[in-house]
Design a protein around this nucleic acid. Structure first.
Length: 582
RNA sequence: GGGGACGUGGCGCAAUUGGUUAGCGCGUCGGCUUGUCACGCCGAAGGUUGCGGGUUCGAGUCCCGUCGUCCUCGCCA
């Protein structure tokens, strides 16, 4: 490179007119008028129009879009009628004195334009071209600013950033671990962290008091639009705190982030809602609270209903019948109702019971089962003439969850969600355990290190009603963080291990080291982890995590750019004492 | 592991009920062009319709299988 830039492509203004400058960048577009040529030069900072006489610069014959050039030239004001108000540099142009071709390019597989509508697979395969596009670049910048604001806020609030190992001990509970086989120790493996949970708790015992880290976490499970195998968390933990202290730190962080990056004011404290209330009213543990359509409990009437699905469900274990009023829904076409039934079915329901309260009385499959007392009950739940009422029947969580999804379906279908609003809400008092039907045992709802809010019953007892100091931060119906007050007493920790079916030997083998940590003066502590990718996605207005990750993986976990995972060679397998299945 | 959608020149799309030589726009290449900024005008090249098999006189179109991508249930915090 003979000519190194003295200005970026977003820098020159009328105040620079007359200056001799050097620009480096990519050719965005060439407009060749024969005796006069316009070149839009682009870098991260902007675009500058270069004007050249092709007869003076023979190299111009060999360059096209995405070639990299250096331009030596003079800044001059554009003629008044040729100014471009759409660009910050639109009042000036650089008249080329010399042009140096720094690199040519193959014909790009797609054009570098804002509204590029090529398929995502191709964009990710050529991410180095895709990221030159302004929307992608903007998402990366947003993320960078988010990370900076997080560090600024956390350090400002007295937290210390500590790095924890990525090669760590594999753990049996929760998501599947990515394994890293050991070369030195045949048959042994590290696990990549699902989160630095035990290390951050250990840091509390170390006396760090306030810890945070922006760290990569890994989970070897199937992917979704909002789930990648590796993702980034803001991980934090504090000593001598109750959950309100954790909330306050996060509220200060998030209100600051929102005012900086979303340009909107979010006020703290955020509303709090118990898990029971969230499930009961919204059919979800991550409620979208920007519209109504709250659910109601139809148990009383369902119990005595002639409709067998209702009455039989009420006699089954954990059986419940829940309903939801769709105001004005009696006018909805059958197609919309059928679609909502499909939603309920996809979430495990046999169907969706519904009734339209029309002018001539109840209509629909359920109407013949509804007596005057049922209709009075519906009225008490807010149903009026002209409304649609839908119901699910089943076990508590599936029935509520399915109806919650139906609620979201109607919220979107009827455009009830005010997307201009930002609703943070804390969900608190989660159940400590949940029953795993496949394995016939209780397992931790969050993880095994969450503190119960009351004394644990003897092993073998019913754990289904136990609550924990466990909380989620929910934003516009997205779970963006999850945390808890932790167990800091080794006896309690040992009890929890026993409750989830770990023998003392297994507990010792997997977590003995951590039980010992707790035995040496562990302070009461708690914390939370926020999903930075998801927060960035919401701030960017994106619908996929891939839009805010520089080099994301496809739904099957493949990196489109590098084609990982790939086959290690024979020697690599051998060194790890492994052999692939043929 | 299950369900759904998609796969056609480099890119985005079209092709009626299975029927002629698979079209259009962008890009690319060549020519013209001194005030454009999605420059314009003229011309040209570019296709094993993801892959494999089948049905048929005939398949981009129908059937079976397979691969890939996306969405999703399960799974996962």
């Amino acid at each position: 490179m003979r000519h190194q830039r003295t200005k970026t492509c977003g820098e020159c203004r009328l105040s620079h007119v007359g200056e001799r400058v050097v620009l480096n960048g990519w050719i965005q577009a060439v407009r060749d008028h024969g005796g006069l040529m316009f070149i839009d030069l682009r870098d991260r900072y902007g675009f500058t129009q270069v004007v050249a006489d092709p007869t003076q610069h023979a190299q111009l014959a060999e360059v096209g879009p995405e070639c990299v050039i250096a331009v030596v030239g003079t800044v001059r004001a554009r003629p008044a009628e040729a100014r471009n108000a759409n660009r910050s540099t639109g009042d000036i142009e650089v008249a080329a004195l010399e042009i140096e071709v720094l690199n040519t390019t193959k014909v790009p597989p797609f054009e570098v334009t804002d509204e590029c509508r090529t398929r995502e697979e191709l964009r990710l395969e050529h991410r180095y071209i895709d990221m030159r596009r302004r929307p992608v670049l903007a998402a990366m910048e947003l993320r960078s600013r988010l990370n900076f604001l997080i560090r600024q806020s956390m350090v400002g609030q007295g937290f210390m950033e500590v790095e924890t190992p990525v090669l760590m001990k594999t753990s049996p509970e929760g998501a599947r671990d990515f394994l890293v086989p050991s070369r030195v120790h045949p048959g042994l493996a590290y696990g990549l962290p699902q989160s630095p949970q035990l290390f951050k708790q250990t840091l509390m015992v170390c006396g760090i008091d306030k810890y945070f880290q922006i760290c990569k976490c890994f989970r070897d499970e199937d992917l979704r639009a909002d789930r990648q195998p590796e993702f980034t968390q803001l991980d934090m933990e504090m000593s001598f705190v109750r959950q309100e202290d954790v909330f306050a730190v996060m509220e200060k962080l998030m209100t600051g982030v929102w005012s900086e990056l979303a340009g909107s004011t979010v006020t703290a404290p955020f509303p709090r809602m118990t898990w029971d209330a969230s499930m009961t009213h919204f059919g979800s543990d991550k409620p979208e609270t920007r519209f109504g359509l709250e659910l109601f409990d139809f148990a009383e009437r369902a119990r005595v209903s002639p409709f067998k699905v209702f009455s039989q469900t009420m006699t089954a274990p954990q059986g419940t019948v829940r309903g939801m009023v769709v105001p004005g829904g009696a006018a909805l076409p059958r197609r919309v109702i059928d679609e909502s039934e499909a939603v309920a079915k996809s979430y495990g329901m046999g169907g969706l019971a519904w009734v339209k309260l029309g002018a001539e009385g109840p209509q629909g499959p359920l109407s013949k089962f509804l007596g005057p007392e049922d209709l009075a009950a519906l009225k008490s739940f807010g149903a009026n003439q002209g409304d649609l009422v839908v119901f699910t029947a089943g076990r508590f969580e599936p029935a509520l969850n399915a109806l919650g999804q139906v609620r979201l379906h109607y919220g979107r279908e009827l455009k009830l969600i005010d997307t201009k609003q930002t609703h943070f809400v804390w969900i608190t008092d989660f159940p400590m355990f949940e029953w795993n039907e496949d394995e016939k045992r209780f397992e931790a709802k969050h993880h095994m290190f969450t503190a119960p809010t009351e004394a644990l019953p003897p092993v073998g007892g019913d754990l289904s009603h136990l609550k924990a100091s466990l909380y989620d931060l929910v934003l516009n119906g997205n779970e963006i963080g999850s945390g808890s007050i932790r167990i800091h007493q080794p006896e309690v920790q040992a009890q929890v291990f026993a409750h989830v079916g770990l023998t003392p030997e297994q507990a010792q083998d997997k977590f003995g080291w951590f039980l010992r940590v707790l035995e040496y003066g562990a302070p009461p502590h708690g914390g939370i982890a926020l999903g930075i990718d998801r927060i960035a996605m919401i701030l960017a207005g994106a619908t996929s995590l891939r839009d805010v990750i520089a080099f994301p993986k496809s739904a099957s976990g493949v990196c489109p750019l590098t084609q990982s995972p790939s086959a290690p060679d024979e020697r690599q397998w051998r060194e790890l004492h492994l052999r692939p299945e043929a």
